[in-house]
């Protein structure tokens, strides 16, 4: 009986995921309305709930895809994977104010470069502080602090050891997850309430999943503006980290 139910959930995994996420959203909005009186946004609670479940799933299965490694919830991987996520992000652009994007465009580009640079320096600085001296290791960890994709790509290009690559992925994951949680909490403090600052936020933080979830939890209407700049971030990081930034690290060390 239970076996056949698990089998069904596995076979119809995407449909099951819709139902599971719908239920999670209901619970999250109920908590938001009744326990926090709407002060903490329902989507923020839903995302935090998702992260907690992902942690539990990762610990219990030892897999790398959070709760979606549990057979019963395998559809979450497809529903929350890159394909549907990007489709939904693009759909949020429908009805966006093009004037705003044009006006902030230049600052957005500056934010992109500053964002990649500042994250890289933060990661590389921490690596040096923890005693790493090899420029390859320092660059790879710095690249990991840019995003968890830039880290391994840079590490592979430069020939870093697999421990250092794993470390760089972990740094990028910490950044992404912290962005999801910290953005709604600091939004008012940093003036993240208009399209302009959302675009600059997207350029400075850049990690797509973090920006996507962080803005969704803050105010869903800001998502397209932040996503617009963030989508260039990983590419820019992969462009700069193994080349210019690596040369800079080697010159300094």
């Amino acid at each position: 009986m239970i076996d056949s139910i698990v089998h069904l959930f596995d076979k119809y995994h995407l449909v099951a995921a819709f139902a599971v996420i719908g239920l999670a959203m209901y619970v999250a909005y109920w908590i938001s309305n009744n326990l926090t009186r709407g002060k903490l946004h329902g989507s923020a609670i839903a995302i935090i709930l998702g992260l907690i479940l992902a942690y539990v799933g990762g610990i219990s299965t030892g897999g790398s895809k959070g709760l979606s490694d549990v057979t019963l919830f395998s559809g979450l991987g497809l529903m929350g994977g890159g394909m549907l996520r990007d489709l939904a992000i693009i759909a949020t652009a429908y009805g966006v104010n093009l004037k705003e994007i044009r006006q902030t465009g230049f600052r957005g580009v500056i934010a992109l470069f500053v964002g990649v640079l500042i994250s890289f320096i933060a990661g590389a600085g921490v690596a040096i502080a923890f005693g790493y001296t090899d420029p390859v290791d320092i660059t790879t960890i710095g690249a990991g602090a840019v995003t968890y994709i830039v880290g391994p790509v840079t590490g592979a290009t430069l020939g870093a050891s697999s421990e250092v690559v794993a470390l760089s992925i972990a740094a990028g994951l910490v950044k992404s997850i912290l962005t999801m949680v910290a953005t709604p909490m600091t939004a008012r403090l940093i003036g993240l309430d208009n399209p302009r600052s959302a675009m600059i936020f997207g350029g400075l933080i850049g990690t797509t999943s973090g920006v996507a979830a962080g803005l969704a939890a803050t105010d869903a209407r800001l998502v397209p503006y932040g996503a617009m700049t963030a989508t260039f971030y990983t590419g820019l990081g992969i462009l700069l980290a193994p080349t210019v930034l690596f040369l800079a690290v080697r010159a300094v060390m």
């Binding site: 995302i47 990762g58 923890f130 960890i141 470390l167 972990a170 740094a171 910490v174 950044k175």
Partner: peptide, 29 residues
């Protein structure tokens, strides 16, 4: 979809990466 994405993140790996990963990620944010 973003909630499903959050639920399929490798949160366990982020926490087991050690202090270097943690401090680097936090500082970047």
């Amino acid at each position: 979809i973003v909630v499903a994405m959050a639920a399929s993140q490798n949160v366990a790996a982020a926490f087991s990466g050690g202090m270097v990963a943690l401090v680097a990620g936090v500082l970047a944010v």
